[in-house]
Amino acid sequence: EKVLKRMREIKNELLQAQNPSELYLSSKTELQGLIGQLDEVSLEKNPCIREARRRAVIEVQTLITYIDL
């Protein structure tokens, strides 16, 4: 939940920025750090946690791809 919240904050900052190119590098670095945090999530045998992590990774990767474009 914390990762998704921060990812959404970054997305809003990028969309509202007057000059978003200044934010791209720092935002991309922070998003890659969020992916690292998601990699540390213990998936164990809980399919709900596994699915939530998968969705979060996809959302963060989508935003990274947007920045790259």
Rank of each mutant, 00 (worst) to 15 (best):
V3A: 05
R8T: 09
R8G: 09
E9P: 00
I10E: 01
K11G: 02
K11R: 11
N12S: 06
N12F: 05
N12Q: 11
N12V: 12
E13F: 00
E13M: 13
E13G: 06
L15H: 04
L15I: 07
L15E: 15
L15Y: 15
Q16T: 14
N19Q: 09
N19K: 08
N19T: 06
N19S: 06
S21C: 03
E22A: 11
L23N: 02
Y24Q: 04
Y24K: 12
Y24A: 08
Y24D: 03
Y24W: 10
L25H: 06
L25D: 07
S27W: 14
S27G: 05
S27K: 15
K28Q: 03
T29H: 10
T29M: 09
T29N: 06
E30F: 01
E30P: 01
E30S: 04
L31S: 00
Q32L: 12
Q32T: 05
G33Y: 05
G33L: 07
G33V: 09
L34Y: 01
I35N: 00
I35F: 01
G36L: 11
G36H: 02
L38Y: 02
D39Q: 15
D39I: 04
D39S: 11
D39W: 03
V41R: 11
S42A: 11
S42R: 12
S42Y: 14
S42D: 15
L43S: 12
L43F: 13
E44W: 02
K45V: 08
N46A: 08
N46P: 08
P47S: 13
C48V: 12
R50Q: 14
R50C: 09
E51S: 04
E51H: 11
E51Q: 09
A52M: 09
A52V: 08
R53L: 09
R53D: 12
R53E: 14
R54T: 08
R54D: 10
R54M: 12
R55T: 10
A56W: 01
A56S: 03
V57S: 13
I58H: 15
I58M: 14
I58E: 15
E59D: 06
E59M: 02
V60T: 06
V60I: 09
V60A: 13
Q61M: 08
T62I: 04
L63C: 06
I64R: 08
T65L: 04
T65E: 14
Y66T: 15
Y66H: 14
I67A: 01
I67R: 01
I67Q: 00
I67G: 00
D68R: 02
D68L: 01
